[in-house]
Design a protein around this nucleic acid. Structure first.
Lengths: 213, 213, 213, 213
DNA sequence: TATGAATGAGCCTTCATTCAT
DNA sequence: AATGAATGAAGGCTCATTCAT
């Protein structure tokens, strides 16, 4: 009916409150999901009044969207900072794989958020105004590296960049996402640095091994 | 720590009710997660009285455990039926990869359940009495095929079966799990049979390509 | 989106609970209006669990509609029981006026509900399924009496039954509705039986006096 | 029982803000009632900061009292401007009736405010300092006209001015107050000028008809 | 074995009000 | 004189669970 009255924080103090809420929400959502998260808990974690959540974000679902957007934006920024144009294809590819695995391992909350959003069939992502900006720089970089490698004869030809992208992300995402159930099968320790490093080496081996002409 | 009073259905009619509840719960849980699932809705879907859920399963969380156990058991059964001992290593491996991808694609609810359980840090799995039975036949099969391939010189040596297992599962699981957010990036159609088939072919290519000595 | 799940009480016990809720709601709404009424208070007055309000009536607004419908239905029933066909026009008219004034005085909550509903521009009445049944028997009776009186030459001719209806109702309704502010002007005692009787006599005098040919 | 700290606006600018708040409050209260009105909305309508409402009026309830006082004062002023002393009784009476009906029709918000205040059993009116000033000039005028009419033999004798006052006001008030529920019965169009004029003619007819000796 | 009815805790959201600048 | 930000106390509504039959 009516446009929601939404306070847009302008003072630094308000901006700080908004940021604290966003951080607290990311943590709470990543731990409990959208349905399991508690608005009270988010407010408490943020050291903010519950009312402020509604003033700055509208409601719980809109807050979820904001968290999601911020998470995507963060990964995009890190990907953008990756410079592999000057590296030989194999080295560049290894770097991409390593970056992705490490980013995923360092940000399990990103994994959790994505999984939850998929549970909701990406309904909230679809609601975001920034959807067009979902584009990931990594994909372009990947396309370039695959092209260079094929041209130089060090990579197999005809690789679909989308499939490659999905596979590279999958190698780390699934590992981090399913860390706990995998631990129930293979025993604990999968989250330790040594295990992460092993997974990293394996992932590079898989991708480079596969790409051999 | 008292044992819950739990009715064990004995008549065929009761067993049927129990089964309907379990099916309904799997659907509801897979769609909404543990926190988002509604006991009322499960009862309605099952065409059963809500009280029966508590009589047969104890409570919502125990029902979740039961659903999880059933899902794991189902996959285990299908894996057990896979016979690749007589096939040449490469062919056997291709079959394993294909099976996994197709199973995952056919059972997105299994993927959703696993993701949710990981959100809960596998706390409910740990509570299950059948945890030791979590063992997956695929892992043994995989170990055998890798061994044969290495011995025959058609596969690279020194491959960790656990990493191989995780990777093979990851190739399909991540694709299905993140179908909706991936669709937001790459456009729709990823769930169509053609797309599944392409992912299947790609997965086989990655695994066999990587395993080349 | 989805049709609301609404429990329709079938057992006598449930029907009794539903009736208690409706009574409590009428009292609470009449005292505080729709916005001022408290669902908790209604449940407490009804000696029922708050949840039952939602089970039986949907939500606060739907409960309001139910209360309104019941109030209208009640007045309609009483009006239907009025038998003035056999009386001479003047006597019949006096009886109608008296009935209306007394009903209004006996049911100040009906007055309060109507006023509130008008504050909401009859938006909830419009939502009612029983709107076509809003028809009031009094109107027909009135039309008949006016016709007989005019034919017999004891009433003036050309009287619009609608205007007459509104006026007759107004004479009592306004008095009861504005009892408290009128008391602030004219002093207390307006609610006492003597004052009601005086208003009744005055109302009859006005109507019969006006209708003289 | 402490006197509230209340800022009394002194600059023209402050007085303008106060006036805008009062106007906005009248509109909001008339539309939604006391309980349903929103302080935020009043501030928004007034284009004023919410804090100013508290500075100038104390709190929501005191603001309600101020709105009520202003509404009464306004009607009083208009009544005072009515000059019927020089007119023959019947003509004077017709003018009083017409004035009242037209004032009511022109100020439905006054009707709504009165109804709300009666819902609260005139509790806020009782709190007003200006209660003694509630006196309505119309009543005196009415008394005078009734007296002159009776003396001249054109009006019936023994009419209680209070009853007459209530009836005259009722004829318009009820019509305007219940416009929406009446429309649900008699169909729309009751708010149109033609319908108002018909009601006006009818009201005059009723009063003058009744007063005939 | 099954069911309709009821419960109490808790959740998301809103509101009147106050603080600090 | 005015404002943006914050607060705490509810308020409407939902949910998992239990009672009584």
């Amino acid at each position: 009916m009516e446009a929601p009255i939404r306070t847009i924080p302008q003072s630094p103090r308000a901006e700080a409150t908004r940021a604290r809420i966003l951080d607290a929400a990311r943590a709470e959502f990543a731990t409990h999901g959208l349905a399991g998260a508690r608005v009270d808990e988010i407010a408490a974690r943020a050291g903010a009044n519950k009312r402020m959540i509604y003033a700055y974000f509208g409601n719980k679902e809109d807050l979820w969207v904001a968290v999601l957007e911020a998470a995507y934006a963060h990964k995009r920024e890190e990907e953008r900072a990756l410079r592999v144009d000057d590296l030989p294809p194999a080295e560049a590819m290894a770097r991409l794989v390593r970056f992705n695995l490490r980013y995923t391992a360092r940000h399990p909350e990103f994994v959790a958020l994505l999984n939850q959003e998929n549970l909701h069939r990406a309904a909230y992502l679809a609601r975001s105004d920034r959807v067009p900006a979902l584009y990931f720089p990594l994909l372009d970089t990947l396309r370039d590296v695959l092209g260079r490698g094929a041209a130089e004869g060090v990579f197999r030809k005809g690789v679909d960049p989308m499939q490659a992208y999905v596979t590279i992300v999958a190698l780390g995402h699934f590992y981090v996402s399913n860390l706990h159930t995998l631990s129930a099968i293979f025993g604990t320790g999968l989250g330790a640095e040594a295990a992460i490093a092993a997974r990293e080496a394996h992932s590079v081996e898989v991708v480079l091994g596969w790409l051999r002409p």
